[in-house]
Every structure is written in structure tokens, then in C-alpha cells.
Write a protein that binds this DNA or RNA. Structure first.
Length: 274
DNA sequence: AGACGTACCTGACCGC
DNA sequence: TGCGGTCAGGTACGTC
């Protein structure tokens, strides 16, 4: 699944290709449930309305419609939004389609951990899945001071802290490992013990890593691809993720993999001692 | 509050 | 070729 850079890349592509376009009709292709059931009412609500804009909250994609509603789409682990020609033939795991004037928007999600929902735009701040979300790392609201305050008020380890969307949104399993490596912070470190100097470095690396990855179009592992089906390229820049038993690019020590809260963490014991 | 397990799913891959 | 086990980028919920 896509982490923040992948979701942001999808948003940018959607803005480029479908912003301002008319949704003629839409239709559920399967009756299988995603994280929750796709509301059948979407079909009527989104028909014959213009796509006004596309934005993002954490890893949720928001498609704002001119009729006062917003589509909320989450890609889960394996979700994709793909732009297809009008003569496209549906394939396995296509769950919903939006018919625009000369193209289709198709939502495909093999593992069905994703989400499609519809909400009144003016009530979006109260949307249940958004109520506990933390700060947007690429917004002006995210500053070194804000990060330090969050670190001081949490007893979680560094990996769990970065993964917890109640602190900072958008950082998933890959970028958590990468950001901690760049910052020289052990994934086991209790975050309230991180020095302010080290926190400044962490701040810089959170922002830089995400921006750099967006620049590369996100990363592509098994399931994620951009709306045109092309791959992103950031995975070529991974320093530790998926590099178990390989040599650290900095110190040549062996990269380790451990399980933290059921997820793999990759790190270098020599470089990450703070 | 946070650690940890479980649940939701399919598919790829590996060893036998 | 098939079978079982393991792993995968997310998130929510329950329990201790």
C-alpha cells in the first residue's frame, strides 16, 4: 500500500486527468465489501456531477464534487485507481467504476482493505475516520516544535510512533524504516528520550523523504501503481527497506530485520544508535 | 497509554 | 503440478 507519497502521486495524476470533468454515471461492479461496504447510494449521488477538485487527508484521497459531496477513497494495501479507455473490459478485483466523458476511473483492490465512501463536503472534518488523524507532515502546521512536542508526550518506540497516524499521518512501514535510518535513530528508542537536536534531524528527514519520494512518483512494490499503470521509482532509493543481510550503504555493517508490532522493521545497528 | 494479538483479504513466492 | 506455510505498503478493535 501506498504510503503518503504514493497517494499524493495518485492525487496529482487525478488532478491532471479528471479535475473539471463530468461524472456521467457510476456503478458498483462487485458486491464484495471493502474495509466497509461501499454505499450503494454513491451510484446516484455522483452521477451527472462535475469533479471540482482533488485533495488528500493522510492516505485518504478526496474527490470533491460540485454537488456538495466528496468521495473518500483509501487504497488500503493493494488498492489502485486506474484511468482506462471507454472500451475497457473489467478484470478481477475491479470493484467500482466511474464513467466520465471519454474515460473510465476504475477502483481495483485485490485484498479489499481499501475504502470508498461518500460524505457531504461541509461535514468532512467530522468524518469518522478523520477525527483521530494527526498532523499533515507536508503542511505548514508541521514544524520542528510540533514534532518535539509530540515526541515528548509519547512513550512509544520510534517505529511505532512514526507509524501511528494519530501523531503524524501518511508514514507507513517502508518510510518509517527509511526515515529512522537517515536520522540515525534506533527503531526501539523511546521517543520522549530523543534529543531536540536529533528531533530536528528527524523533522528534516520526514519532510525530505516524503517530498523526494513524491518527486520520484512514489515507490512501486507489488501492488501500487500510478493511475496510468506505470511504476514509481523511489524504491530504487531505499537504503534499508527490504535489504536484510545486505551491507549498509554507510558503514558496511549488515542490515537487520526485526518484527515490531507485527510488521518488519529494517535497520542498521551501527548507524542507528541514537 | 501502549504493547500485542486478531481480523479483514488475495496473491506471490518458497520449499517440499 | 500441487500443497502448505509465510509474507506483503493499512487500519480498526479488543484485551491486558
Amino acid at each position: 500500500m501506498p504510503e503518503l507519497p504514493e497517494v499524493e502521486t495518485v492525487c496529482q495524476e487525478l488532478r491532471k486527468h479528471v479535475k473539471g470533468k463530468l461524472i456521467k454515471t457510476s456503478c458498483l461492479i462487485t458486491n464484495l465489501r471493502l474495509r466497509k461496504e461501499i454505499p450503494k447510494s454513491i451510484e446516484t449521488i455522483v452521477s451527472n456531477t462535475l469533479i471540482q477538485d482533488i485533495s488528500r487527508r493522510g492516505k485518504y484521497i478526496l474527490i470533491h464534487l460540485k454537488n456538495g459531496y466528496s468521495l473518500v477513497i483509501h487504497l488500503g494495501m493493494s488498492g489502485k485507481i486506474l484511468i482506462k479507455p471507454v472500451d475497457y473490459n473489467f478484470i478481477k478485483h475491479d470493484h467500482m467504476v466511474f464513467y466520465l466523458e471519454n474515460l473510465l476511473l476504475v477502483y481495483n483492490d485485490a485484498r479489499r482493505f481499501g475504502l470508498i465512501d461518500i460524505v457531504e463536503s461541509k461535514k468532512i472534518e467530522n468524518y469518522s475516520y478523520f477525527s483521530k488523524l494527526g498532523v499533515e507532515p507536508l503542511s505548514e502546521a508541521f514544524t520542528p516544535e510540533v514534532l518535539i512536542k509530540l515526541l515528548k508526550s509519547s512513550k512509544a518506540n520510534a517505529k511505532a510512533f512514526l507509524m501511528n497516524s494519530e501523531n503524524i499521518v501518511g508514514i507507513g512501514n517502508i518510510y518509517a524504516s527509511e526515515i529512522l535510518f537517515k536520522s540515525g535513530i534506533s527503531p526501539f528508542k523511546c521517543v520522549y528520550e530523543i534529543s531536540e537536536q536529533r528531533a530536528d534531524l528527524l523533522y528534516k528527514n520526514i519532510v525530505e523523504t516524503l517530498i523526494e519520494s513524491i518527486h520520484f512518483g512514489g515507490s512501486t512494490l507489488k501492488d501500487y501503481s500510478k493511475v496510468n499503470g506505470e511504476s514509481g521509482y523511489f524504491q530504487n532509493n531505499f537504503k534499508v527497506y527490504g535489504k536484510e543481510a545486505e551491507a549498509c550503504v554507510v558503514c558496511d555493517n549488515e542490515i537487520k530485520r526485526v518484527n515490531q508490532n507485527g510488521r518488519s522493521t529494517f535497520f542498521c545497528e551501527m548507524c542507528q544508535r541514537s
